[in-house]
């Protein structure tokens, strides 16, 4: 593969925004996966599809409406789950199908949009503009700062809500904040992998990292590394082989996951751990 492709502006923008998106998806995703809300990102992405369709139908900037709808859905979903004690997977199922349904109905009503539905569904990272890249970088930076500042509160609430509450952590506010961040992350990431594959970025690197990581910090670093590696190699490979980047990114993510499963099942990881422990003792 020639390094010449890295000199192209569109490729540089794709890689830079891809890395930023990988960073936030894996970080936010780690908290969601550990809270058994792995499909939450998927549900929000589907509701964002409804938001984009509504924006186009009503003549507003679709991305802003998508942000509003995703955040509204995230908060609504949390409230419904809390108030009516409906199980998490059921509420995700409702949001998932209703988001797409709203989108499809609005598209039919308008007789089709000029916007490329395929790129909404599967992403179009190679088309990001300079403005988009700056926006994604800014948003990713803001999300990471909030997560770093509230790291203890977020991890403690994820570990055990009741104990966090007794420690004086405002658990409900932290939970709402996390779903708002998840909503923003999802809409920002639609450009990279599209609506249908978004949960892969939230879930696969984290499940892989949880299998291998010995500590929370190590797991977070592993998850971020897997996500960034999948995104960068996925984008480069898609250009070389002329295929959709999102599919390639998810497949590379899956390949890392399968390799990790292999490492785990053959006991390679424990072998290295025993050797390390022996070294420390001697």
């Amino acid at each position: 593969m020639s390094l010449e492709i890295l000199t192209y502006g569109f490729m540089q923008r794709a890689i830079v925004s891809g890395i930023a998106i990988a960073l936030i998806c894996s970080t936010v995703g780690l908290f969601l996966v550990l809270r058994r809300q792995s499909l939450f990102g998927d549900a929000l992405a589907h509701s964002a599809f409804g938001g984009i369709a509504a924006g186009l139908f009503l003549g507003f900037y679709p991305t802003w409406i998508a942000y509003a709808v995703a955040i509204g859905s995230a908060l609504g979903l949390s409230k419904i789950r809390q108030r009516f004690q409906i199980s998490g997977d059921a509420t995700v199922g409702i949001l998932l199908s209703s988001g797409i349904a709203i989108g499809v109905v609005l598209i039919s009503l308008s007789g089709g949009f000029t916007v490329d539905i395929f790129s909404l569904l599967f992403g179009s990272i190679l088309l990001v503009s300079v403005e988009d890249t700056i926006f994604i970088l800014g948003l990713a930076g803001a999300i990471l700062i909030v997560i770093l500042l509230l790291y203890r509160e977020l991890s403690y609430t994820t570990f055990n809500e009741e104990q966090a509450k007794v420690s004086g952590i405002p658990v409900e506010k932290i939970n709402y904040l996390l779903v708002i961040i998840a909503g923003i992350t999802v809409v920002t990431s639609i450009q990279l992998v599209g609506i249908l594959l978004i949960s892969a970025l939230f879930v696969i690197p984290n499940v892989t990292a949880i299998m291998l990581g010995r500590s929370f910090k190590q797991t977070a670093i592993l998850s971020i590394s897997f996500a960034i590696f999948s995104v960068v190699t996925g984008i480069l490979a898609s250009y070389v082989f002329d295929i959709t980047p999102s599919g390639m990114i998810v497949l590379i993510s899956m390949a890392i996951f399968v390799t990790a499963l292999g490492v785990k099942s053959t006991g390679l990881q424990s072998y290295h751990r025993i050797r390390r422990t022996k070294k420390i003792k001697s």
Partner: peptide, 27 residues
């Protein structure tokens, strides 16, 4: 006030070390 629950409920796969869990409680 420090509190120790009857049975600590947490995700068994939670990827945190003992030190990290104790540190969560530290203000």
């Amino acid at each position: 006030v420090g509190y120790v629950p009857q049975k600590p409920v947490f995700e068994k796969n939670f990827p945190a070390t003992v030190k990290e869990v104790v540190k969560m409680g530290l203000r």
